[in-house]
C-alpha cells in the first residue's frame, strides 16, 4: 500500500477532506504533516527561496517533515479551480519550487489542476488516481466519496452558527486564517476577549456568489469572489462588529484583494477594519498590541452607543 503525504499548508486548509478521502478510497494510506510549529517554519525558511511569502515557506517545512515518512508526495500544480479565476503564480510553480529547493524527495504527484477554461475535474482525477490504481470503478467511487465528504465539511462549517453580537470577521487566505501558528492564535485571543471570530466560510456559497455579482470590477483571483461577496454581504447586513484582514508580507494577490475589501468596507459602512501583515517574526508583541487596541476600540464604540465617553464618565446626562 502506498503512503501518500499531504503537506499541511496552502490549499490543504481548503481541500483537506476532498484529498484525504479520495486517496484513502483509492486504497492509499494518507499521512498529513503535523500542525505548523516553529521547527517547520525554521526548516521552511531555510530551504525555500528567500523572497517567497511565509505560507509558501511554511509549506516547504511541511514537505521536509514528510520527506522521509512517505513514498509519494501530493503537490498538485494548481492553476485555477473556477472558470476565469486564477491563482498566485507560486501555486502554478510549486512542484518546481519544491523540487529544486529540497533534495532526495520521494515521488511527487504534481498533476495540473486547471479548470480556468473548463471543468476538467474528471480528467484531472483520473490522472491523479493513475499514480495509485487504474481501476475505473474504484476511481469513480473514490471521486464520489471525496466530493461527498468535501460537501459535508463545507456544510459543517456553516453550522458554526453566527452568534447574536460581538462577531469579528477574520478575512484572508485560508492557509493563514486556519493556520493557528501563522495567525498567532488570533481566534483564541479574540474569544478570550469575549468576541466571536467567524470566517467567510460560515456563509452559504450561493449568498457569497450573489453578493459578489454586485462588485463592479472583474473577479480575477481565487478566493476574491468569496471575500468580496462576504464583504458586500456584511455591509448590507451589519452582522459583525469588526473585520480583521490577515495578509502575509509580500502577497501579490492581497495587494489587490485586501485593498478592495478595505475600500469597500470603509466607504460603504462604519464597520471597523484592520489589516495585519504577518511574516516570519515569532515575537507576538506587535501583533498583540494591534489586536488589543482594535478590541479596545470596539468596546469604546459599544459604550458610546450608551452615551458613555471613552473611559466611563457620562458625556450626556439623560
Amino acid at each position: 500500500m502506498s503512503k501518500i503525504g499531504l503537506p499541511r499548508g496552502l490549499l490543504y486548509y481548503e481541500f483537506a477532506p476532498l484529498w484525504t478521502t479520495f486517496f484513502e478510497a483509492l486504497g492509499a494510506e494518507v499521512v498529513v504533516s503535523p500542525k505548523t510549529n516553529k521547527k517547520i517554519l525554521d526548516d521552511g525558511t531555510r530551504y525555500c527561496v528567500d523572497d517567497a511569502c511565509i505560507p509558501v515557506k511554511v509549506f516547504h517545512g511541511h514537505v521536509l517533515n514528510l520527506k522521509n515518512k512517505v513514498d509519494t508526495l501530493f503537490i498538485p500544480r494548481i492553476m485555477g479551480i473556477h472558470q476565469k479565476e486564477y491563482i498566485c503564480p507560486k501555486f502554478c510553480g510549486l512542484p518546481e519550487m519544491i523540487k529544486y529547493s529540497i533534495n532526495d524527495l520521494p515521488k511527487m504527484i504534481n498533476t495540473k489542476i486547471d479548470y480556468t477554461k473548463k471543468d476538467q475535474s474528471k480528467r484531472t482525477m483520473n490522472q491523479i488516481a493513475s499514480y495509485i490504481t487504474t481501476n475505473k470503478k474504484t476511481i469513480q467511487k473514490a471521486y464520489q466519496m471525496a466530493n461527498q465528504s468535501y460537501t459535508e465539511y463545507k456544510k459543517n462549517q456553516k453550522e458554526l452558527l453566527i452568534s447574536n453580537n460581538h462577531n469579528i470577521m477574520i478575512m484572508g487566505h485560508p492557509y493563514i486564517i486556519y493556520d493557528d501558528f501563522l495567525n498567532m492564535s488570533i481566534k483564541k485571543k479574540l474569544k478570550k476577549a469575549g468576541l466571536y471570530p467567524v470566517t467567510y466560510d460560515i456563509f452559504d456559497e450561493s449568498i457569497l456568489n450573489k453578493y459578489a455579482l454586485g462588485y463592479h470590477g472583474k473577479i480575477f483571483w481565487l478566493f476574491f469572489r468569496k471575500m468580496i461577496g462576504a464583504c458586500l454581504y456584511l455591509i448590507d447586513h451589519k452582522l459583525v462588529d469588526g473585520v480583521i484582514y490577515l495578509s502575509s508580507f509580500g502577497c501579490g494577490i492581497d495587494s489587490v484583494v485586501a485593498e478592495t475589501v478595505e475600500r469597500n468596507i470603509r466607504r460603504n459602512s462604519q464597520i471597523p477594519f484592520m489589516l495585519i501583515t504577518i511574516d516570519e517574526h515569532s515575537g507576538e508583541a506587535g501583533f498583540n498590541t494591534r489586536l488589543e487596541a482594535f478590541i479596545d476600540m470596539l468596546k469604546w464604540r459599544n459604550k458610546d452607543e450608551n452615551y458613555l465617553s471613552p473611559y466611563g464618565d457620562y458625556v450626556y446626562s439623560r
Binding site: F249, P272, F273, T277, D279, G286, T289, R290, A293, F294, D296, M297, W300, R301, D304, S309, P310, V315
Partner: peptide, 12 residues
Amino acid sequence: NQIVCDFAMNTV
C-alpha cells in the same frame, strides 16, 4: 466624537 474610530501602526 472623542471615540477612537480607526488607527494604524507602521507595518514592516
